[in-house]
């Protein structure tokens, strides 16, 4: 009995929290790695259409994005409601696309360049005219791998 009392007096009842930072850091690193910081402001309204035969885009660094849609409300006064192209964080025309592709290409190591994919994020209500023009430009500049961005279909 006396033995018990003595032992209880000695031990500290606190739980060690020394490993807590490590656990938190691990979570932190996980989220840091999976985070995609939004690159710039979306200037066009894009709601991509739905589809079923979807393929995942691998390796974010090999993908460049071309957005097509109506300018968002903020830019309506300046640019009207005609569908426009957004490259990076600014409005552009079809003629800016080759330069944009080239700028992306030089950042990619040479052996991986044939695997570069252009992701077309086009609003569902846009007419095909502007999309066709973009596709023609892409073909002319030798960017043949395309991905029509879409959402999985919910039944």
């Amino acid at each position: 009995m006396a033995h018990f009392v003595k032992k209880r007096g000695k031990s500290s009842p606190e739980v060690s929290t020394a490993s807590l930072p490590d656990i938190i850091f691990m979570l932190l690193f996980f989220f840091m790695v999976v985070t995609v910081l939004r690159d710039g402001e979306r200037k066009v309204k894009v709601v991509v259409p739905q589809a079923t035969q979807l393929q995942k885009l691998e390796q974010k660094s090999l993908v460049n994005h071309i957005w097509i849609g109506q300018p968002v409300d903020k830019y309506r006064d300046l640019y009207g409601t005609k569908p426009r192209i957004q490259l990076g964080d600014k409005f552009a025309t079809e003629n800016d696309i080759p330069l944009f592709l080239e700028q992306h290409k030089i950042k990619v190591p040479e052996p991986q360049r044939p695997r570069i994919t252009s992701s077309l994020k086009v609003d569902g209500d846009v007419t095909m005219g502007i999309v066709t023009d973009v596709k023609t430009i892409l073909r002319k500049s030798g960017q043949l791998k395309l991905n029509y961005s879409a959402r999985p279909k919910q039944d």
Partner: peptide, 19 residues
């Protein structure tokens, strides 16, 4: 990072254009 994370996988229909 939890707040800023958007885990959206880019998906779409892959096509290959003719040269």
């Amino acid at each position: 990072f939890l707040v800023t994370t958007t885990i959206d996988v880019d998906k779409g229909i892959t096509v290959k254009l003719p040269p």
